[in-house]
Write a protein that binds this DNA or RNA. Structure first.
Lengths: 334, 334
DNA sequence: CTGTTAGCGCTTTCAA
DNA sequence: TTGAAAGCGCTAACAG
């Protein structure tokens, strides 16, 4: 249980500490034979440099923080996977923080990060309406920050998002184009900001491409039974011929509602849904989905962050990634 | 963009570096007035101790590594949430690593962790049949390790698991008790070890509680269409009256298969499924699920790890958490 | 109660 | 080509 550090290697080999250090970094001013010896011993003892010491010395940690609302969510799971792919390839480590939608927690996390714990921060902000002094702190301290998905217009950092507004238009228009005259929008719980953005796309599409006068927005709470009831009531009262679900779970509930009400998909009613994991799509061969490029958002955000860390230049600019509409004529040979 | 460190605070206040350090740690040997001054300035400048320096000095990092196969998976998402709850409450940070089922990656991650990057490791091992020299390394270096979910019998670390075998028996017995005479088991892709454990529970329950002579094990590949076909073929050929799905996704596919084949759930066939996020349960009021305590596994594993880190005593012992069977007589007033 | 100093493990001048 | 030594920021032993 001896500590395997440079000092120990040096003593074992009768070399100076600095020589060993240089050898390990493959410096050109060390003779091949010495390098050989050092490498051999280091390997044999599985020498690993002490991260704290290197970090302290070099003022960099090879770690980035990822701060997200939470994890029980297909979208963020996929984003993290994308981030991980990039950071892993470039030798960076991920520190993970959940804000649970609590702005105060976000502030406290960011505060602990301003003094050299990480080389950069990837953040999906908790409360877009709130102040962002804490983020300004990061900029002050020269710690690169890239925002993704939930961004703040008031920050001029690099932002990576997807086209929620435009793709909601696309989705709605798709229903219109396939003949729907009365389209309802299933809006996810108000705690999820994207529900509003997508609603705006829905409204815009109705105005622009449809004769439908009154929008049909169903507020669906997080509670499944309440959401079921809300959709069920709307279905019976309004008899729409098209439904646009803002998130995958609502499409699943909607599917069940239709079954209950003896409404056939897609004969009586067409359904389109945002979807990340495509579980809903397993249900019905005719369910068309619109998929956010979650994994790519993660990859892109991470790539941007590492780029900025490297250049030490806090570049600006936004990246907007496109969602994809997936039409299923027949899955599982229906 | 001045560096806010103890030295800087000391200079500003005309105090010695050590005095400031002690004041910040609220040492009893510092006068209240001095403390006051130090606290005030530290707060005003948002002083945050340099994690590398503290870590180097104290030989501890307040970070733990979480190493899992991947993240696009309800189970591990929930586990991480549980881990996060505990670590966050106790001031620890999470370093996240994905092995993607690659044993070599796992080895390489663990190797980078042996030299003081983290205070402890939470691991769900990638390949249970493989060697675990790398884990022995951790023990050698005195870095606490807690295994969860996918554990190795050959290691004598603390292990936190759930009762996959027993709960598979419970699930199968539940079908038998409700009158099923011919029960099929939908086995998840062979890359998922738990598919086999649960199969053994299924077999055991048949032997012990049922007259059913031949088990019906359907091998379901990861590919949805192939899984659909496998289940569909079995359904037509064997006409079982009960189905036990080893994972939630297979229950969803099975649901669709039944619909295709015009087989009614639960009138013609009873279905029970392992399920973490209960998406499948939204589908059918009569779907009974068996739920792993994923969140609790995370909490427990983290709690055990932090306990060991604190005591510096590598305690042993296993924790097995119980799955819960959830019977739904009627959801969504069917 | 406060200051001086050594040292955690590493990298990097500066010297030899 | 190698060695000696300083210093990254922090804490704690020792001294006053």
């Amino acid at each position: 249980m001896n500590k395997i550090n440079i000092k120990y290697l040096a003593k074992e080999l009768n070399l100076a500490i600095s020589t060993v250090s240089r050898a390990l970094r493959d410096s050109h001013e060390i003779s091949p034979e010495t390098k050989e010896k050092v490498f051999a011993l280091a390997k044999r003892l599985n020498y690993q440099p002490n991260a704290n010491a290197s970090g302290l010395r070099a003022q960099e940690t090879k770690m980035i923080a990822v701060v997200i609302p939470d994890m029980v969510n297909d979208f963020f799971s996929l984003v993290i996977s994308g981030i991980e792919k990039v950071t892993q390839a470039q030798g960076y480590h991920i520190l993970l923080y959940f804000t649970h939608g609590d702005h105060a927690l976000e502030v406290s996390f960011i505060n602990t990060l301003v003094n050299g714990r990480v080389d950069g921060v990837l953040l999906s902000i908790t409360d877009e309406s709130n102040d962002n002094e804490h983020l300004a702190q990061l900029n002050d301290k020269g710690i690169p920050l890239v925002l993704f998905d939930r961004v703040s217009e008031r920050m001029d950092n690099v932002k990576v998002t997807s086209d929620n507004y435009e793709s909601a238009i696309t989705a709605t228009k798709h229903l219109i184009d396939t003949g729907c005259k009365k389209i309802a929008y299933l809006k996810v719980d108000k705690s999820i900001p994207v529900g509003n953005i997508r609603k705006n796309g829905y409204l815009q599409a109705l105005k622009k491409y449809s004769k439908q006068k009154t929008p049909l927005v169903v507020e669906c709470p997080n509670n499944n039974d309440e959401a079921f009831a809300a959709i069920h009531n709307m279905l019976l009262a309004e008899k729409p011929d098209g439904i646009f679900a803002s998130v995958e779970k609502l499409a699943v509930i909607c599917y069940r509602v239709c079954e209950q009400a003896n409404v056939k998909i897609p004969e009586d009613i067409k359904v389109i849904s945002f979807s990340n994991l495509q579980t809903a799509a397993l249900l019905n061969p005719s369910l068309t989905t619109i998929t956010q490029p979650a994994f790519e958002i993660g990859e892109t955000a991470a790539r941007e962050l590492l780029r900025i860390i490297r250049k030490k230049g806090s570049a600006k600019g936004d990246v907007v990634l496109q969602s994809r509409l997936i039409e299923r004529k027949s899955t599982f040979r229906g």
